[in-house]
């Protein structure tokens, strides 16, 4: 049994110390996953809190033979999809605003990077814009692959899709991004 699975077993047994260790281990990963997807630090904070509450409550249902990472990202993906769906429904938050918010959280961290050339900054701006404009499932799949480093099988499990569907999503997402990067 790996370390994470052992922590989950102890959490299911009611050991609060084990839960604290798990949060300390995955808090940063969860927070950055949500931050990249939402672009808003407050949303990322709320979603990370929801994520760990869900992990805590479902600890008894966790199967140790499955990798904890896949279990963790499955909950995170569901929360992200739900959040992005709600946000899309809110009239006040248009796609344009999402893009702007995306810049706040992600691109702003690079604006002061003196190592980046003007072209580099422009490419990054286009990339962020293209990413923010992708359908939510595509963004989640890409994030799970690139940042989460999940395999196609793990992404399929996390998103409730077939491996073939995941691969198609990743190809289409990359084609869309390449088109945006090529513009101008």
């Amino acid at each position: 049994m790996n370390d994470d699975a052992d922590l989950m077993r102890r959490i299911a047994g009611g050991e609060s110390d084990a839960f604290r260790v798990l949060v300390e281990r995955y808090e940063r990963i969860g927070y950055n996953f949500f931050l990249r997807l939402t672009g808003v630090s407050e949303d990322a904070e709320d979603l990370t809190q929801e994520l760990f509450i869900a992990v805590f409550r479902s600890a008894g249902r966790y199967r140790p033979d499955a990798p904890f990472k896949a279990f963790f990202y499955r909950i995170a993906s569901n929360l992200s999809a739900s959040h992005l769906r709600k946000r899309k429904l809110r009239a006040a938050q248009s796609i344009d605003e999402m893009v702007e918010r995306g810049f706040d959280a992600a691109s702003a961290r690079h604006e002061d990077d003196p190592a980046l050339s003007l072209d580099g900054r422009e490419m990054r701006r286009r990339y962020e814009e293209a990413l923010a404009g992708l359908p939510r499932d595509w963004r989640i799949a890409l994030e799970l692959r690139v940042a989460g480093e999940l395999t196609y099988e793990e992404i399929a499990g996390a998103m409730g899709k077939s491996v073939s569907a995941v691969e198609s999503i990743l190809v289409r997402a990359r084609e869309r991004i390449a088109e945006k990067l090529d513009e101008g």
Partner: peptide, 21 residues
């Protein structure tokens, strides 16, 4: 694009996050 995506610096979660969870 992959290079840009991977180069995004990770942000530190706010210190208040752990206690609030």
């Amino acid at each position: 694009g992959l290079s840009i995506h991977r180069s995004v610096k990770e942000a530190d979660p706010p210190p208040s996050l752990l206690p609030s969870i």
